[in-house]
Structure formats: structure tokens, C-alpha cells
Design a binder for these strands. Structure first.
Lengths: 200, 200
DNA sequence: GCAAACCGAATGAACGTTCAATTGAGGGTG
DNA sequence: CACCCTCAATTGAACGTTCATTCGGTTTGC
């Protein structure tokens, strides 16, 4: 039943579709949003140009679906690290580290995300999965406030602050300007925690 | 002499050039990076297409120069709020608020920044002014560490965290999803300060 | 009268998308 | 098993549009 549910949620993606997603993400990372013509995507994915249009209505749809697809993977990380049976503080550190390593190890995706959320697509075709991601994230921080672990600031604010700290650190690591060791990463998380936690 | 210096630094920009910058920023904000043809920029700026090429070598150069131009204004904010004669803690809050209001009130610019730094231009033509911005920012936080006001974490880390918090809050305010009142803004700054400051 | 600034139609390349044609997997029939 | 039919998957050349850029000519300021 667990498997059943996962299959339903993921909607069983075809190999070609996945190859197209992968190529698009890599090319967008290197050449940007513009600068990745469909012909190039096709070549990289090892399919003909026409084939892409069998799976996707247009370039715009391809990009939007890719965003949702990638976002689902980020959602999976949040769901995995925020089970309600684990104490809040422990979950907080696990979530921070989980998302950080996810973004750090998926730099194509990270770059694609940033390009996408600042593009006009976001407004012309609002992505469903992004809402879900933030809903989950904010719910987690609301729990922290409810349980008296966090200061009484809007969960949206705390959640956004936490997430932006993760993103900026992952981008820093990705750009190669600074590589963090385990101790530094713990320092960063602790620093954030000190800010948002309710001192006893 | 004060005036003299400022003029030298700004290099005396022509009205047409400024109009082109303004139009580009507005159009990029609405239509994204792609989706703003030079012809549209020209029309919005009230000049002919060819005129743009009198001032800028190419679209790419226009965008890069615009980035530097905009970045200079952000630099001006940092310089204004981080004079060494004001106590560090007070400067910190002034800087946070100064940059926050700057970004919030210049949403075109904010959006353009985000698009630009995640585009491939950043790597093909590394922007000088971005370096200067971060150099100033990091120097300020280094001062905080040196004066024993901040925890001994790399100034690059603290600076990046602080800046990302500003950006994410300004983006939130810009998107209209949440409008902050003065008390909430103070809460956010305090929260950050609590995280990075050395408890006595 | 001479630069520099400015114009905007023309050019040519690049790109998203289409479509007629081909392949191949499955399945029903005798 | 051979045959045919169907339909989805796939191909890639061709099309039409859009867009950055050019350039010969005109205006403006000095």
C-alpha cells in the first residue's frame, strides 16, 4: 500500500520524459533559460525535436512540468525529515541538513529553481507543487511555535528565513567560493536556531 | 570635493542611457529576460532601436552594464549605513533596514538582480560591482567580529546569511504575499541579531 | 560645416513548432 | 504461425516568426 500510494503520486514517468527533464535541467544550468533551444534539448536527450512535442505541449509547459517534477523531490525531503514523532529541535537540524545536502548535491536543480521562480512563467502558470512545499514547511514551523520551542513570530517569516539560509549556503557551496566542513555547517544551523528558538 | 568624487564614480550618465536602463529593468521584471526584445526596450525608452547600439555594444553588454549600474546604488546604501563612527550594533540594524527598504522600494531592480545572478552572463562577463558590494558587506561583519560583538564565524557566512534574510523578506513584501509592519520588521532583525551576536 | 547623436527599415540568423511519413508493439482472425 | 490492422511513438526536414543587429541617411548641437 505504501508502494501503491507512491506510484499514484509520482504518476509513473516514462524514460524519455525523464531524459528530456534531465537534459533540460543541465542545459538550463549551463546556458540559461534562453540559450537552451528545443533542438539542443532534443539532441542531448537523444530524441528528435518532434518527440518532445509528443510529451509536452510547448517549451513553456515543459519548463513548468519540470519545475513541478523537481519540486516534488524537494517535498519528499521535507516530508522525510519532519515526522511528528521526532522532537522538534532534532527535526529542525535534520531538516536543515537534509535540504542543504539535497540542494548542494543537485546543483542543476538549484540553478533551475532560481531561474524559474524569477521568470514570468511563475505568474503565468502558477506551479502547484511550490505551494505544497511551502505549506509543509510553514506547517512544520507552526508546530515549533505551538510546542513552545520557537519565538512567537509568524511561521511564514521563520520558515522563509530558514529556507533562505539553506538556499544561500547551498549556492555558496555550489559556486565553489567556499566549501564548508561539518563543524561550520553545525555552527550555521546553531546560529539560526539561536535566533529563532525561545530561550528558556 | 564630496560632490566631485561622486561625479567621478558615477561617470556622468546621459539621460537617454538612464531611460534605456529604466525601461530594460521594468520590462525584464514583467516579461523576463527573454521576452524583452530590444525593439520593445527602444519603444518604451522612446528611442529608436539603433540608438541603443550607439550606447551599448550589444544586448548582453546592456544587461551587464545595467547590473553594474544598479549594483552601484546598492553599494551606496551599504556605504551610507556602515560608517565606522557609529556603534556596530546600531549600524547593523540601520544596514538591515536600509537595504530592506531599498530592495522593497525598487522591485524592478530586485527582480532584475535575481534574474541576472542566476543567468549565464554572470560567468561570461563577471560583474565588477558585485565583488565590491560583497567586499564591503563582508568587511562590515568582520568589524563586528573584531570588536567582539559577533560570534566568531566566518564573515562571509554571517554576511551571506544576513543579506539573504534581507532579500527574502524584501521579495516576500514585493510579492504582496505578506506586508510587514514596523514591529514585525524589528522582530526579524532582532531574531537575526540574536543568532549572530555574542551573548555577553 | 562637422561631428556626434539619432532614426527605423532592412537583413539574416535562430528558434519554436508543425506535419507527413516511418516504425514498431500488440492483438485479433483464420 | 502468418497476416493484417491499429494506434501510439518517433523522426527530422520545412515553415513562419521573432529578434538582435546593421547601416545609409537625417537631425541636432556647437
Amino acid at each position: 500500500m505504501n508502494v501503491q500510494l507512491r506510484v499514484e503520486a509520482m504518476e509513473q514517468i516514462s524514460d524519455k520524459k525523464r531524459a528530456i527533464f534531465k537534459s533540460t535541467m543541465e542545459l538550463v544550468r549551463e546556458n540559461g533559460f534562453h540559450g537552451t533551444p528545443m533542438s539542443l534539448v532534443a539532441k542531448h536527450a537523444g530524441v528528435a525535436a518532434g518527440t518532445i512535442y509528443h510529451y509536452f505541449e510547448s517549451k513553456e509547459h515543459l519548463l513548468c512540468e519540470l519545475f513541478n517534477y523537481a519540486q516534488q523531490q524537494a517535498i519528499a525531503v521535507v516530508e522525510q525529515e519532519t515526522v511528528a514523532t521526532i522532537p522538534f529541535k532534532e527535526s529542525f537540524f535534520k531538516l536543515w541538513m537534509g535540504l542543504y545536502t539535497f540542494y548542494r548535491d543537485n546543483q542543476d536543480m538549484l540553478r533551475f529553481f532560481e531561474q524559474f521562480v524569477n521568470s514570468p512563467f511563475r505568474t503565468t502558470m502558477p506551479p502547484l507543487e511550490e505551494d505544497k512545499f511551502y505549506t509543509l514547511l510553514f506547517a512544520f514551523f507552526e508546530r515549533g511555535i505551538r510546542e513552545g520551542e520557537l519565538k512567537d513570530v509568524s511561521p511564514k517569516i521563520v520558515g522563509t528565513l530558514a529556507h533562505s539560509s539553506i538556499l544561500s549556503m547551498a549556492k555558496m557551496a555550489a559556486s565553489g567560493r567556499l566549501r564548508f566542513n561539518k563543524k561550520e555547517l553545525q555552527q550555521i544551523q546553531q546560529l539560526l536556531w539561536d535566533g529563532i528558538a525561545l530561550g528558556r
